[in-house]
Design a protein around this nucleic acid. Structure first.
Lengths: 190, 190
DNA sequence: CAGTTATTTCAGTAATTACTGAAATTACGA
DNA sequence: TCGTAATTTCAGTAATTACTGAAATAACTG
């Protein structure tokens, strides 16, 4: 690996994080490299920078494309493929969320639904279904929320985050006041 | 594996999902089994149900305990360990979020901060630092929001989710009205 | 304390996943 | 059309991760 030290630390860290998810080390490293590099890179430049085989780069780029995490660019009079990541980190976050949902949440929801359709044949199955219904309910609530939020553009989403916290605090304050009237002992300050 | 068919589907699915994360198949299966079973189970019951070795169960349970995803129970006059999951799915979600943050987000934040402290030695490094600063900013915003939200109790959190969506819609409506006054061509309905 | 049961550890092996180099395919350009 | 550069595929191998059985340890009981 042949990179400016500061970039190298970042790339190595992403490699580690990658293997902590399903993503493998190389994929993580390539992504990190593309993320911090100003211009798009071609496959051979990646080979060079990370010291891995050409075929590995090819497969890893394909993986990143499957995740929609990478942009394919073409320079004039050059038929090689060049790759970058989107500039907007919020957009990256959205893509990541969307892809993870597609791969992890949606299949789970559909398995749950399928099981919940079936007739329980014992107490054990009846109880299991109840538990799965709870899980299903939770996931549905979360995805409904997510579907609402995901359409927001970058600056709007940022606003919502700050706002979300404020709403929370407001709810707490309201609740405190209400409980003052309800409880026997009045609570201490703060 | 010797389980009611309906439970088995669930357990197998969680096994698959497990290996899609860092979590391995067995850990996922054990968790799923504990989740849908009404009473706590001991290690031998898990061995029996999933058809895996005693030692594998021991190691996997240790892993689940490290994730705080499992509760250790003791029955009177029985010195074996029994395991369950918490009843409240929202609590489970919170634990999961907390642990993933601890393992994935916090280390990344600290790597980023460390790199951002350093003096860039080239244009490449300078640009890389800018990109890392963007990522750092995003993560900080998200964790601030998360820190606010995570303290909420179950019902409060549920409320916030529904509310969050409403706030979003409100923002959109406001924006539409404002833009009506600003733009040259008035936008179509809906 | 010796005996019994429960649990953990760990070296060895099995299974899976990652990576490579060589060959095949694709996409041009002359 | 042939030749060349870019990319992909894939069989084989390396590296990693998961799992087992046997042995060790821990925790109790009489």
């Amino acid at each position: 690996m042949n990179l400016p030290p500061l970039v190298q630390s970042f790339v190595l860290h992403f490699g580690e994080m990658g293997s902590r998810w399903g993503i493998n080390r190389t994929v993580g490293q390539i992504y990190a490299l593309l993320y911090v590099t100003p211009e798009p890179l071609n496959a051979d430049q990646i080979v060079e920078s990370l010291g891995i085989s050409r075929s590995n780069v090819s497969m890893s780029l394909r993986e990143l494309q499957a995740w929609n995490l990478v942009l394919l660019k073409h320079l004039p009079d050059d038929r090689r493929d060049f790759f970058t990541t989107p500039d907007d980190v919020w957009q990256i976050l959205r893509t990541l969320a969307e892809e993870r949902k597609k791969r992890e949440v949606d299949p789970t929801l559909s398995v749950l639904r399928e099981i919940l359709m079936q007739q329980p044949a014992s107490d054990a199955e009846r109880h299991a279904q109840e538990r799965m219904a709870e899980m299903h309910g939770l996931i549905e609530r979360l995805t409904t929320w997510y579907d609402d939020v995901k359409k927001l553009e970058t600056d709007r989403l940022a606003t919502l985050l700050t706002l979300g916290a404020k709403v929370t605090r407001l709810l707490e304050a309201k609740d405190k006041i209400v409980s003052l009237g309800r409880t026997k002992r009045s609570p201490d300050k703060a």
